[in-house]
Each structure stands twice: as C-alpha cells, then as structure tokens.
Write a protein that binds this DNA or RNA. Structure first.
Lengths: 234, 234
DNA sequence: CGACGCTTTGACACAACTCAACAACCGTGG
DNA sequence: CCACGGTTGTTGAGTTGTGTCAAAGCGTCG
C-alpha cells in the first residue's frame, strides 16, 4: 500500500502526475514537520530570514499591516499551500504570516529550493504552477475588493475557498470546518466586522449558505455562483 | 561608448550589477521589437498563447473583466516592466493586457524563458526578483483598496508610480508624463471616475499634487507620503 | 463647423461605517 | 459549582463616503 500523499502532493498531482521518485523527493523535502500553536506569528513583516513554508495541517493567515494599523488579509493558507515564496526571492518579507489554528508546517530554505529546480525540474515546474495559481487568486481577490459589492464579494470568497479546499480533499458534502472569525473575514474582504455579520445574515436568509460554530454549509452553490459572478479558477 | 541600456536592464542593475555578457544576452533576448498602436489588445483574458512580453516604451494596462462587465486594473506597466509571466506558467491568461499609448514590446516564448534560467541563472534570478517585486506591489495595491480611503489610496498610487518610473529614469524634477484618463484611474483604484475627479481636486487644493494635460506634478512628496501612509517598496 | 472623448460640478441616493448596547460562548480560577 | 472576564457574534440608529444621474465645459480631430 502507498503511503498517504501530503496535501501538497495531492494538489500538485492535479496539475501533473508526479513520478514515484518525484513524490519521494517531495516527501523528503517536507520531512521535518514543525508544530506551531494557534496564533503563532511565523513570519513578521520586514523579516530578512530566507525561509518559505509549506502548510501541512491547520489554517493560516497572510496579511499586511498598514502604517495606520489597519490589517489587510491577503489569503488564508490551507493545507497544501506554500507560504512566503516571494519573500525568499525578495530577501525581505512584505507581509506577515500567523497560524489561526494549531498547525504543522515544513520550512524550506532558499538553497533547498534551488535544488528542487535543478534536480527535479518537473517538480519545480509543478510548484511554480501552484504559486502562480495562488497569485491568480490574489489578483481575483483584488478585482473582488475593487469592483464587487460586499454581498457578491463575500459569496465569491467562500466559493473560492471551497475550490481550494476541494483540491486537497477537505471539502465534501457541501460543508467544511472553517476557523475564521467574522473579524478575520472583514480584514480579508475589506469590510468592517459588523458589516460582515449583516452580509452573512443576508446569505443565510437568501438560503445560499450558513456559517455557524466554525462550520460553513453551502446550501445552493449554483445560485451562489450566479450571485457572486464566479468563474472557475483556470 | 556603451550602447544605451534598455529600461529593463536599467531596472535589473539596481538589483544586481549585470556582467557585459549578461547584458549582451539580455539585449539579444529583447532583440526583435514589436511596435503596437495605442489601444491594441495584446493579450486577451483566457488566451492560451504562451507568451510573455517586456515593455520597452509606452504605457500599458493589465486588467481583468468581471462577468458583469466591470473592469479592475491590476497595474499599468511602464517601460522595463514584464507582462504576463504568470500566464506563461499557467498556460492561460487570467487577465488581459492592452496598450494605452503607442508602444514597443518584445515577445518572449516559454522555451526562451527556460533558456535564460539554464544559461544565465544570475540573469534569471534578476528577472525573478523583478516580477516578485511587481507581485509585492500588487499585494500593496490590494491592501490599499481594502483598507485605505479614496484620498489615501489615490495619493499612494501616484507615489508608487513615481517610484517605479524613477527606477527606469522616467521621473525627474518632481513631474512626469502620464497618459492615464480619470476613467483608467478609477478602474485601478476601485472608484468611480467621478469620484476620482473629486479626489484629484482635493489633492490639488491641498497643494500636494496636480494632474493636468497628462502631466503629473508632485508639489509636496513629504506631506503626500504622510497622508498616504506610504512605505518604500523594499 | 460638429462630433466625440474627457473633465468638471451639483444634487441626490445608497452602501457601508461607527457607535453603542447586549447576548452567547468560552476557559479560568475561586 | 458558579462567578468572571474576554472573545465573538448580533442588532439598531445615525452618519458619512462614495456612487449615480444629469448637465455643461473643453479640447481635439475629422
């Protein structure tokens, strides 16, 4: 019997099937798991450390703090997501990362990263695909905040999250566990926490989705897609 | 006497000095200039063509069109900027690109791109730095739309633009040519064109900057930075 | 000259924010 | 066991920033 695939391996496999050797190398790359507690700040804005991370389990939060103290969430990494790849290239982190739940990550340094590209270029390409996809999602996020209403934007956010969770097998039966607070959501969607509450109520009353006790239930994805103007990611 | 450096070479040189051979290779890479007319749509959303571009002269506009027809501008590329690198990796363009002025570009296909990384890894690293920097700017843009007021956001936009133009020698004496319409600005800033007009008037009345006849004049960068909560890009 | 694109301004409407109060739900310690 | 403070969620009332609609001013180009 095969060992279980890591979330990242599962995700990359949807892009291109990986050989046994590539999978083994990937496993090795992620071999030393680091357990982090809920709320730990792994990467600080302005950090010079040249590390990227891969999230194995748990949820995280990538965000920027503006000079006036406001917070903008860039994305909520879920298992299988890469974190801080850009910071490695830039030698400085332009954003912070903290865990929203207890989590397990692997740390990858810059040298190790170049190794991947030299030794297993196909694997490197798959990882590059994955981070490019995340970028595309960020751009979508930008378009949403700039041009969608609060209601559309919120619906869109949950649909996109669903899609990302599905890719690593964490979404089934139209529902998933979601540790985000309304405050977290607000900082991601560019809204006030209070308004997020009202929008969630609207979505509930429209019988599109519910979000109670850290559990999201999608009641009517089709209608929700129409409302959000949702297009599949690639 | 040395031949004049291309805008891209100028920009990369601020990251790391390039050797004569690297510069020669870069020149060769950009050897076949393509002239495009104002308003040409070089890349369409959803295109499968595997091309990236480097902008030599003129201004461009990278944007997304949402299902309801709304437009969100991601960035306005200026000389020296790379366009559509992500699309090459993803095999599909998640956004469109059109020229705002008559412009000159070079086209780079995927194979040629891999060549760069294999033959001149240092040059490849410099290009990777440049696109990562653009990503960081996009993330900043996201934070601005999500968490800054229209006034702060607009001021911030012009400061960031200034910084990018300075890097390729197109900003001097506190002023620069700027072919953007207020409508373009609106689609970049997530505002209505009418409100952009009001904000520009405010900035003028505060004696921070003016924008008339396609010319931006910065009157007081220091005060403007304070207003915008501007932090230098790396 | 007229047509067109871009800018400017005013009046009004509405989406989203702020403030304030309260309810529900923890985990902790007495 | 219950009392407690802290975090999160909920709701209402009033305010404000930004959008919409409408109309007019300007340049430029054919």
């Amino acid at each position: 019997m095969q060992p279980a695939l890591s979330p990242l391996a599962t995700k990359l496999a949807t892009f291109m099937p990986l050989t046994r050797r590539e999978n083994a190398y990937l496993d090795d790359l992620l071999a030393t798991p680091i357990a982090v507690e809920r709320g730990a700040e792994l990467v600080r804005q302005g950090d010079k450390g040249h590390f990227a991370y891969v999230l194995h389990s748990g949820w995280g939060c990538s965000f920027k703090i503006l000079l006036d103290g406001a917070r903008q969430v860039i994305t909520f990494p879920v298992p299988g997501d890469c974190i801080g790849m850009r910071s490695v290239v830039l030698r400085t982190s332009d954003h912070a990362f903290s865990s929203l739940t207890d989590a397990v990550v692997s740390r990858i340094d810059a040298n190790r990263m170049s190794d991947v590209f030299n030794t297993f270029p196909r694997l490197g390409a798959a990882i590059l695909w994955s981070v490019s996809r995340d970028e595309a999602i960020t751009v979508d996020h930008l378009a949403g905040i700039g041009r969608r209403t609060a209601l559309e934007r919120t619906a869109h956010f949950f649909l996109e999250l669903t899609e990302r969770l599905r890719l690593v097998g964490l979404f089934a039966d139209d529902a998933f566990e979601c540790p985000l607070t309304q405050h977290d959501l607000a900082d991601a969607l560019g809204l006030s926490a209070i308004h997020v509450n009202r929008v969630l109520r609207q979505l509930r009353e429209m019988e599109l989705m519910t979000f109670k006790n850290n559990r999201v239930v999608l009641l009517d994805q089709k209608k929700m897609r129409v409302l959000a103007g949702y297009e599949d990611i690639l």
